[in-house]
């Protein structure tokens, strides 16, 4: 579900197209946008407190074969939530799981890893060594 939540809408569309699953499915819960209150911790490690909310969209899809897929994704994109729930349902089908992993999960994870790598490399290039100037004698 993590990879589906992080996938872009084009990634979900492309991956699901490639799966070519003749999917008859029904929407158990129409995509719905709501709020999740984000919590931090005092001092980063202490008791929780509420920082602010985020928009989240969720959906539930059921395949004709009975598997139920869920999605919870940041943002307000209802189509993305619907497709992420569908992908989650397909992933639960034993016959489809490997294909879903290959066509959807892996490309998304690869993109995220590459982005993460690039961001980390860019951040690391801004690492400084400060030399303190001693005051007084010497």
């Amino acid at each position: 579900m993590g990879a589906f939540a992080r996938a872009t809408l084009p990634e979900l569309r492309l991956g699901l197209d490639q799966l070519d699953a003749a999917t008859s499915c029904e929407m158990l819960r129409r995509p719905e946008t709501g709020l999740v209150m984000l919590r931090g911790r005092i001092g980063g490690v202490g008791a929780p407190f509420n920082v602010g909310e985020a928009t989240v969209t969720r959906a539930v899809m059921r395949l004709a074969t009975g598997e139920t897929g869920f999605s919870y994704v940041l943002g307000r994109d209802k189509e993305k939530a619907r497709l992420a729930a569908l992908a989650d349902a397909l992933w639960q089908q034993d016959t489809m799981r490997a294909a879903v992993e290959q066509r959807l999960v892996r490309p998304v994870k690869a993109r995220l890893a590459a982005e993460e790598q690039r961001r980390a490399a860019q951040a690391a290039a801004t690492k400084v060594e400060f030399f303190a100037m001693a005051r007084g004698e010497d």
Binding site: E32, G34, V36, M37
Partner: peptide, 12 residues
């Protein structure tokens, strides 16, 4: 918008 709930505390 409806409130779905509270997140787990973010791990900064």
């Amino acid at each position: 918008l409806p409130r779905f709930g509270y997140s787990e505390p973010l791990d900064t």
